[in-house]
């Protein structure tokens, strides 16, 4: 029982990181019907931006003196990484996807794979291919409840992810840009007829999705201790499966899918074998494509004539 609770807590924490990344896949897909394969690399760049900005803010001195890194500096790290990734996302859209937006669907897909490989290699060149130890933006504190261990890090991951998702929800539901995003995802020409600058909304979608992925990158670094330039490959793929599981194009779907993938992974590691933890994601992908290809919360769209 305690082991089950332990796995659930770890699973939700990991899953909330997948959910943050899955949101970017699902938002871009919802609007452009494009699988942005470079999104995993945006997540990686977010993690590295956090790594370097924490360094620039003098985190090694805090670590050497065993002092806690101040929370406000941690928030600066988070915001810097989110802003940098947003800019990167906007650049990728502008330079790689916009020129091929009206090309046959295979073209943007191949472009996306190209951008992804480019960023992986650029990462190895710039950041070195060796894994880096992630700085202790949070120093670990353990709490124990009835034998279940909860760390402040797992809690923070969950809470930060939750706050960002709530913020996204408000943004999408209440702001004009958010409303425009929902309009675009249904019918881009009709959105133009409302006077919506669709290029601008697409740009915002990439910015928001990328910023969330960067937050995911920092949380991932906190959780997993090390980062490397290829970290976006497997984690990006898992988050993509999370988006498909939830129903690609659906924002609540991405959240549910992310949490479920995180849970499935932890429960597999805990009860089957740690070796299967990555494989379970793909078993889920195959099952969902066979049984419910539109995903758990995806809708089959019917249009009236």
């Amino acid at each position: 029982m305690t082991q089950l609770l332990q796995q659930i807590i770890n699973g939700l924490s990991l899953g909330s990181i997948y959910a943050l990344i899955a949101l970017g896949y699902t938002m871009v897909y919802g609007i452009l019907k494009l699988i942005n394969f470079a999104h995993g690399e945006v997540f990686m760049v977010g993690a590295y931006t956090g790594y370097y900005s924490a360094g620039a803010l003098g985190i090694s001195a805090y670590e050497a003196q065993h002092r806690d890194f101040p929370v406000y500096l941690g928030l600066i790290v988070l915001v810097t990484a989110m802003a940098t990734a947003a800019l990167l996302g906007v650049l990728i859209e502008l330079l790689a996807y916009r020129p091929v937006r009206n090309a046959p669907r295979l073209t943007p897909l191949i472009t996306a794979i190209g951008v992804s490989l480019f960023l992986q290699n650029a990462g190895m060149l710039l950041f070195s291919p060796n894994p880096q130890r992630y700085p202790a933006i949070l120093s670990e504190v353990r709490f124990e409840f009835f034998g279940v261990i909860v760390t402040n890090i797992k809690l923070t991951i969950f809470v930060v992810a939750l706050c960002l998702m709530l913020g996204l929800h408000l943004f999408v539901q209440k702001t004009w840009t958010g409303r425009a995003m929902r309009a675009l995802s249904f019918n881009i020409d009709a959105a133009k007829l409302m006077g919506i600058d669709t290029d601008n909304v697409i740009r915002s979608t990439f910015a928001v999705g990328s910023a969330l992925a960067a937050a995911g990158g920092i949380l991932f670094g906190l959780d997993q201790i090390t980062i490397n330039p290829l970290m976006g490959v497997l984690t990006g793929l898992k988050a993509f499966v999370a988006a498909v599981l939830g129903g690609i194009g659906s924002i609540p779907g991405a959240v549910v899918g992310g949490l479920l993938i995180g849970l499935a992974e932890q429960l597999t590691a805990g009860y089957l074998s740690a070796e299967y933890r990555d494989a379970i994601t793909f078993v889920i992908l195959i099952l969902i494509l066979l049984l419910k290809p539109e995903g758990l919360l995806g809708v089959v769209r019917v249009e009236k004539v």
Partner: peptide, 28 residues
């Protein structure tokens, strides 16, 4: 001109097939 710029001039098209946003409420 981009379509949204033409719309800004003060023209509205009610397209064939209506093109309402079926994922949103009437109010939205």
């Amino acid at each position: 001109l981009a379509s949204h710029r033409v719309v800004e001039l003060g023209v509205a098209l009610v397209p064939e097939g209506r093109a309402i946003f079926g994922n949103l409420s009437v109010r939205e």
